[in-house]
């Protein structure tokens, strides 16, 4: 139970950051916090009481936890990293064009410079 709440709270914190912050870098940090929360949630779903790591060892015969979520999380982590790198380079591009990474200022500049097609 505590694991679920902890993992979901991490997702919640990440969502809170995304919803309230204007700074794009902070928003990306929020997304990455939420990602780690999701990964923890997946792992906790696969937990078995008194389970050990799902790797066979000679002379060891204990119940193992579910290996599937661990494999899924491995994939999810890599995807999270890839997205973060891509998003970060777009933020760098935004900074180069607008000179700021505050989303509300960027939106204001876009509206201001628009030639009437918004």
């Amino acid at each position: 139970m505590m694991f679920y709440i902890a993992a979901l709270s991490l997702i919640g914190i990440g969502l809170y950051v995304v919803l309230t912050k204007k700074n794009l870098v902070k928003v990306l940090i929020g997304i990455s916090i939420a990602d780690s929360g999701v990964n923890l949630l997946l792992i906790s779903v696969g937990y078995l009481k008194n389970g050990t790591a799902p790797i066979l060892e000679k002379g060891l015969n204990k119940p193992m936890v579910d290996p599937v979520p661990q494999a899924l999380v491995l994939t999810a982590i890599v995807i999270g990293v890839a997205t973060l790198a891509l998003a970060m380079s777009v933020v760098i591009d935004v900074k180069r064009h607008f000179g700021t990474v505050e989303l509300d200022k960027v939106i204001k500049m876009m509206r201001g410079g628009d030639n009437g097609d918004a």
Binding site: V18, L24, V27, I31, T83, L86, A87, V90, V91, D93, V94, R96, H97, F98, L103, V106, I107, M110, G113
Partner: peptide, 14 residues
């Protein structure tokens, strides 16, 4: 890598 595409994309990504 234009001003407009950067602005449109960052909203999409988030």
């Amino acid at each position: 890598k234009k001003k407009e595409t950067a602005y449109a994309t960052i909203k999409y990504i988030i």
